[in-house]
Amino acid sequence: MGRKKRRAELPWCFYCDREFDDEKILQQHQRAKHFKCTHDRCNKRLMTAPGMAIHMLTVHKIKVEKVPNAIEGRDNPEWLIEGMNGIPEGFDFENNRALVDPKAENVVVTGKRPNLGEHAPPGAIGGWGAPPAVGMGMRPMMRPPGAMGMPGMPPPGFPPPMMPPPPYGMMPGMPGMMPPPGMMPGSMPGMMPPPGVAPAPQPQPVAPRPEQAPITETVMVWDDESESIEEKRASLSKYSGVEGRAAADGEGETKDPSAEGEEDGGDAR
């Protein structure tokens, strides 16, 4: 037995079996019900369950075991399902369990973007481009890769890798009064790795961000770690009359190995 007949027409939510008039509303439903960060003050709506899991893990350090409000057995947060796309091939809707080991096969299969089908392991069962399993009562989801995504939408299945970078890159320094979308409470932009990695080499800024205008070059206005802006300014001739001695002392100070030596090394760019 497959799924009930009526389901053949309308898009429905894999997680809670609810039907919707169109795919867009289904996606809104999924974002609100199943892909919403459960942190009490965050409530960020992600595009997919893995996206939500990554967000909650990285931002709130909460490990997502189950997709919220999902029927038991359909609540695996590793499945990359968006709208009607990505429902694990060979899912047993009667017993709510994946026929194939979800960890091993389905994740791989469903995690692929439709048009990446050719990269899927040759032996992978199903997959986006594969015909639907016979008798599984599957929805007509063998639509051509990517067809489900509406024109203005990101390609289905792509969001998770995409999600984190924009908030991190879009930061306050940018013009405009409104906090960028990435400024939702939990997704503090520019979030740093833990302090343990402090003396790490040049941090993030150089990394290209998938954004409007990718940064091709970063200019640090003050990159002299050996002295401060005031020390540099104090060495100007116009202040030397005032305090020649201070400038001379400053010279000696900059040789301080404990203070400056490691900085220079860690800072080489």
């Binding site: 320094g173 205008a213 091709t216 070059e217």
Partner: peptide
């Protein structure tokens, strides 16, 4: 665990990001 750091006072213009102190 709650500590963090964030970027600010950076100006982006035509792909060049200027990082101010």
């Amino acid at each position: 665990e709650k500590k963090y750091a964030f970027k600010c006072h950076r100006v982006r213009d035509a792909g060049v990001e200027t990082i101010h102190p």
